[in-house]
């Protein structure tokens, strides 16, 4: 059978939903971060697949590279925030740090 663009899009949809579920249900700050990584990866798969199948150019590849860079920046900042959070509240459970609650 021939692998077409739909296959990749379906895989990325699954990945996206799993990521969404992770972000929605996990209470560990780092686990939420992992969920975000899943989301980013699913978007990235889409870009690469479109670049491969639809367009002749390299925009998709470049976009996925930018996504990786953004993920790196995000991970660095998130690590700093998590460490800060842990030092201040002695927990990384996001349901316990609710000082912004209205």
């Amino acid at each position: 059978m021939n692998i077409g663009i739909e296959h990749y899009l379906i895989v990325s949809s699954f990945l996206f939903v799993i990521g969404m579920y992770t972000v929605a249900t996990r209470r560990h700050a780092v686990a939420i971060l992992m969920g975000v990584e899943l989301l980013l990866n699913s978007a990235s798969i889409n870009f690469v697949a479109f670049s491969h199948f639809v367009e002749g150019g390299i925009s998709g590849y470049v976009f996925s590279l930018f996504i990786i860079v953004l993920a790196a920046a995000e991970a660095a900042v998130a690590l700093a925030i998590v460490l800060s959070l842990f030092r201040n509240t002695n927990t990384v459970d996001v349901t316990e740090s609710v000082t912004l609650q209205g």
């Binding site: 560990h28 780092v30 971060l33 990584e37 990786i68 660095a76 998130a78 690590l79 998590v82």
Partner: peptide, 15 residues
């Protein structure tokens, strides 16, 4: 090599 290691770091450093 990079991002995942950073994430695991943050797991090990906090919990």
């Amino acid at each position: 090599g990079g991002i995942l290691v950073v994430i695991l770091f943050s797991v090990l450093l906090t919990k």
